[in-house]
Simulated assay, not measured.
Amino acid sequence: MEPRPKSFYVLTAFFALFMLFLYGPTITIGILSFQGEGGGLTFPMQGVSTYWFRDLFQQQAVGDIWGSFGRSIVLGLMVMVTTVTVSVMGGLAFRTKFKGSGILFYLIITALVIPSILISLGVGLLFSQTGLTVHWATSGFGAQLTWTLPFGLLIMFAVFNRFDKSFEEAARDLGASPWQTLRHVVLPIIAPALIGVALFGFTLSYDEFARTLLTAGSYNTLPLEIYGMTTNVTSPVLYALGTLTTLFSLAIIGVFLTIALIGNRRRARAGSDAGKGVL
């Protein structure tokens, strides 16, 4: 076996440092969340316990944390469903060239490069100046869509750019209507991409701070509530909250990956059964 070049070890060390930089803060917060009852926000730890997790579940200790958590879940689901629906519709529309499609595409992408706080300020001013109520379910919802829709549309553009139209032609030759072709042919084929768009939509909404800051109104979402806690909470209960929200985010990702895995296995099984039927 040939010895590895020195560049391999240099790049390995660089990658290890990068991973430490990326996940080190999260791991540190996770460790400090298990401080003993007399522990503070820094090392050294004063014992090990789950005291701060128990304290977290006392409503008066953390203000409206559970209400903000519920609002973030509802808002994330709203954004997820809208992002998936509009992204699929947009992807289907852009399969055919139409007048102004290039300009419309760049207008969509522009939302990604405009500073998020300016989007939040603009949407908040628009609602207030037109007499509409600034609320997380209206103005906050709209502001977050300017963040999630471009990602969803870019994914759908890439998917439909590689989509084999012969599957649709075969379905139409067999007498399928446009709706039947979409429902029974197109959507099952692009299902993994739809799961990815849904994951993007929910997680980007759930974690979004800047575009919600001036559009949430009187009620905070979870990121805003956590930010508010940093100014008045001086105990590891803040770290306990961070640990739980991180675990929740990982659980959501796990759920979406499981759904994608089950879907792939079902499609593989269906294809295998179809092949046996032909033989």
Rank of each mutant, 00 (worst) to 15 (best):
M1F: 10
P5Y: 09
P5T: 14
P5D: 14
P5M: 10
P5K: 08
S7V: 12
V10W: 02
A13Q: 02
F15H: 13
F18N: 08
L20M: 07
F21Q: 08
P25S: 11
P25I: 09
G30A: 15
I31L: 12
G38E: 14
G38N: 12
G39W: 00
G40M: 08
L41D: 13
F43A: 01
P44R: 12
M45S: 07
M45H: 05
V48T: 05
V48W: 04
V48R: 02
S49M: 14
T50L: 11
T50N: 09
W52I: 01
F53R: 06
F53E: 10
R54D: 15
F57V: 08
V62E: 03
W66A: 02
G70N: 14
S72E: 07
S72V: 01
I73Y: 06
I73P: 13
L75V: 12
T83G: 05
T83D: 05
V86K: 02
S87D: 11
M89L: 15
M89N: 04
A93Q: 03
A93S: 09
T96R: 14
K97I: 10
K99S: 09
S101F: 04
G102S: 12
L107V: 14
I108S: 08
V113D: 11
S116H: 08
L118P: 00
S120H: 02
L121F: 13
L121G: 01
G122N: 04
G122R: 04
G122Y: 03
V123C: 03
V123A: 10
V123F: 08
V123K: 03
G124C: 06
S128E: 09
Q129R: 14
L132A: 06
G140T: 09
G142A: 11
L145R: 07
T146K: 08
G152L: 04
L153Y: 01
I155P: 07
A158H: 03
A158W: 05
F163L: 06
E169G: 10
A171S: 15
D173V: 00
D173Y: 02
P178D: 14
W179R: 05
L182R: 01
L182H: 08
L182K: 11
L187G: 13
I190N: 14
A191Y: 11
A191Q: 10
A193E: 09
L194A: 06
I195L: 15
A198M: 02
F200M: 15
G201T: 04
F202P: 01
T203K: 02
L204Y: 06
D207I: 14
L213D: 07
T215Y: 00
S218A: 13
P223C: 06
E225Y: 00
Y227P: 03
Y227I: 10
G228L: 08
M229D: 10
M229V: 09
T230F: 01
T231M: 10
T231P: 06
N232G: 01
T234V: 12
T234L: 14
L238E: 06
Y239F: 14
A240N: 06
L241N: 00
L244H: 07
S249D: 10
S249R: 02
A251M: 12
I252A: 13
I252T: 13
I252N: 05
I253M: 10
G254P: 08
V255T: 10
V255K: 01
T258Y: 04
T258W: 01
I262Q: 12
A268D: 11
G271C: 05
G271H: 10
G275Y: 12
K276W: 11
V278E: 12
L279Y: 11
